[in-house]
Nucleic acid binder design. Structure first.
Lengths: 218, 218
DNA sequence: CAGGAAAGATGCGCGCACGCAAGTTTGCGT
DNA sequence: ACGCAAACTTGCGTGCGCGCATCTTTCCTG
């Protein structure tokens, strides 16, 4: 339903976007993030620099998007997939945790990179805002909230909480030595457990979800 | 306590900052926002363009800051001033509403400008994030939450809710005619009442505040 | 009050984001 | 199969954000 017809045009676009973000990530990992010019990324993707800017508004966004990809959509989908019987707060929490937990090999190197560079960390944290719209839609449906006023606030709060959790998680970024050590062992987790931090950050919002849920299904 | 000694250096800095934002706003109102180059602002403030960039990272931020000024601090102060007897959720709501309500004559023209320009609207909405740190501090104190983990989440949620309220408030920005009409009458309020919108956006968070408050003062 | 340290202002240079006005490709109706 | 309209790509030009090195101002301490 969401894919009536891919269309050749659309496929090419997605291919270009993918090529750009992969190139951006690869180059950033190979040389340092500061040693990658837009021109390089565009060339590696077989595209003009101007076109690159039609897809990404900043170099950081391109690199980060290779890790973030379509996390927003996957979170929304994960939430929609949960049985409607469970408490909404729990469903949201688990959906979020789930999507931030599956960490592959490639993401490790990338996360490493992001941890060390300020600009990249900022860009990475900014991606949390992207989960807002899809989350709003799903929550609004569960709450039977056509105007989606409270759904929007709740979704935005979730995004903010996730942001805070991630902030804390990759805080000790000013310590290159520790990072290097972790790199040697193949670990990324800078400090503590991400799932735990996510749950902790989201838990204060649970009462708000409960109240909203109670309001529609007494 | 917060002002042990102004110091000449600090005063000059604030003066420069003020000169820059006033110049930015004035020029933006006189000609269009797009007809103001950084060079103009710097010159009007009697400062080099490079120095301007030491104070503001973007032209939009400079213009908007003339309206936002130190709203963050004032919100925090307003909250801290409330008697500790009242419900935290109410105290926060009223503090926020109060600080977004006092709208002078100059802000009207500025708001007008912001409403019409996409980039300015974006910058304006981004300022809501600035209330997060001071709000966190005050909330953490009320909750007696040293680590401020829940306080941070709540403060961030408030910021997000305020953002949404403002978004809705100045939504019909694509309608220059209506704006012009309002201008003629001296009204800015694009649609509905801002205080109402703020209260509506914040209300879903009340249960979260109640629960947090209950946890510390049973 | 002298003199050094710390903070700030400024000039320079580099990439970058993006509007604009072509040129090129894809989609669709007939 | 043709051809037009819409979508996308690209080159060009402009102003901007900011790192870096240098010079000036403010501050502090003996």
């Amino acid at each position: 339903m969401t894919t009536p017809r891919p269309g050749l045009r659309e496929r090419k676009k997605q291919a270009t976007r993918a090529a750009l973000r992969e190139a951006a990530l690869r180059l950033a990992v190979e040389r340092g993030p500061d040693q990658v010019r837009v021109e390089d990324i565009a060339e590696a993707a077989g595209v003009s620099p101007r076109t690159y800017n039609n897809y990404f508004v900043s170099r950081e966004q391109a690199i980060v998007s290779a890790v973030t990809a379509d996390r927003e959509a996957r979170i929304a989908a994960a939430l929609a997939a949960r049985p409607s019987g469970v408490r909404l707060a729990d469903a949201v929490t688990e959906a979020v945790v789930e999507q931030y937990t599956n960490t592959g090999e490639r993401e490790h190197k990338a996360l490493l990179l992001i941890t060390t560079t300020t600009a990249l960390r900022k860009a990475f944290l900014d991606t949390t805002a992207g989960i807002e719209p899809p989350l709003t839609a799903v929550i609004a449906e569960r709450l039977d909230d056509p105007g989606a006023h409270t759904a929007r606030v709740l979704a935005a709060s979730v995004a903010a909480a996730v942001r805070i959790a991630l902030e804390d998680w990759l805080r000790p970024s000013g310590n290159p030595e520790a990072v290097r050590n972790l790199d040697a062992v193949g670990l990324v987790v800078p400090s503590g457990s991400l799932p735990d931090r996510l749950r902790a950050a989201l838990s204060p919002l649970a009462p708000a979800f409960d109240a909203a849920e109670r309001r529609t299904q007494p």
